[in-house]
């Protein structure tokens, strides 16, 4: 479908020829550098060279275990806390027994932390998604776009895919740039150290690379949901500022809202998008709220996704294009 590829080219041109987009890429790179430098400095007190601190990690772990065991003796501990203490002790003991140093101060340890920088990508992609549709209305260019021989669906799809393409490019930039920064600051030793998980009452060794990819992959789920949400809002309200504002607000307060609702024992809290958007707990052996499972969350997310998509497509296809005045 060469015509569709040309539509994609157009959308990409409109994304990457904007100064704002280039600024976003610049900011992402600067923040990654800053994040790497601060983390490293905070851990070891200097920027370059492999940390020496890990030499006495055994003693530190031993102290931690003793401390945790003392905590276990205390009464009236809530069960989840008790469980996590036991898990900590088992994992630390495993490290001591098998001589596996903690990941702090290694390249992998750093990479595990950088996944939180995807929040920045969520933010930027929401902006790009919102401008992609609503911007055309604000600029008035939507009219010339719609009186060309392409159906509205094709144009919308090209916009959606170009936005997702932007998100993927940003993720690749973040990943590769973090890897480079990490390798420069932490060196490339200790790469074979495994990722430890506590499963079914025992400690299991897993691949660290796979763990990092899983973390990034799970972040992609919330990225996809929030971008689709922003896309919908910008189609429904044709206002990029509203779409950006609302999506960002919900991204950063969604968890809190769910927390408050579940604290009030609201039974439908688990059906809220934001209760399901972060799938990481399932991969660490727990659930965000009681009565939820990975498959439950996937079904809820799919339903939300379909609703967002259907609304976006129906409204974009059906509604008249009116001018801003």
């Amino acid at each position: 479908m060469p015509n569709f590829l040309r539509l994609l080219q157009n959308e990409n041109m409109k994304i990457y020829r904007r100064t704002g987009t280039l600024a976003m890429i610049g900011i992402l790179i600067l923040v990654t550098i800053a994040f790497a430098s601060i983390t490293k400095y905070d851990e070891s007190g200097y920027l370059f060279g492999a940390p020496t601190k890990q030499n006495n990690w055994q003693t530190e772990l031993q102290q931690q275990i003793t401390h945790d065991k003392q905590s276990l003796q205390e009464e009236d501990l809530p069960k989840p806390y008790l469980d996590s203490l036991k898990e900590q002790i088992a994992l630390n003991q495993y490290r001591l027994d098998h001589d596996i140093s903690p990941n702090e101060g290694t390249l992998w340890g750093f990479m595990v932390n950088t996944d939180s920088l995807t929040a920045l990508i969520v933010l930027f992609t929401i902006i790009v998604a919102s401008i992609s549709v609503a911007g055309e209305f604000t600029w008035g260019t939507i009219k010339l776009l719609m009186i060309r021989s392409s159906t509205r669906s094709k144009i919308l799809l090209s916009k959606y895919l170009a936005t997702l393409g932007f998100a993927v490019s940003m993720l690749i930039v973040l990943f590769l740039f973090s890897l480079t920064c990490g390798a420069l600051l932490y060196g490339v030793g200790n790469l074979s150290s495994p990722y430890l998980v506590y499963e079914h009452g025992g400690v299991v060794e897993k691949s660290m690379v796979l763990h990092i990819f899983t973390l990034y992959g799970l972040r992609c789920v919330s990225l996809l949901m929030m971008v689709t949400f922003a896309f919908m809002i910008s189609t429904v309200f044709r206002s990029s500022s509203l779409a950006i504002g609302l999506s960002i607000f919900l991204t950063f307060t969604g968890n809190t809202i769910v927390g408050i609702l579940s604290g009030m024992n609201v039974s439908w809290a688990k059906y809220i998008l934001f209760a399901n958007i972060d799938l990481t707990p399932y991969f660490q052996g727990s659930a965000p709220l009681e009565g939820m499972s990975l498959s439950f969350s996937i079904i809820v997310l799919s339903i939300y996704y379909l609703i967002f998509m259907a609304l976006t497509w129906i409204l974009f296809n059906k509604r008249d294009i009116v001018s801003g005045d």
């Binding site: 040309r6 539509l7 080219q9 041109m13 409109k14 020829r17 904007r18 260019t141 009219k143 021989s149």
Partner: peptide, 18 residues
């Protein structure tokens, strides 16, 4: 109304692609 952040030529390329 045209894309102001693009050049005139880039605008025309945009419509030409369609």
């Amino acid at each position: 109304e045209m894309y102001k952040f693009l050049t005139g030529y880039q605008n025309l390329i945009h419509y030409w692609r369609m």
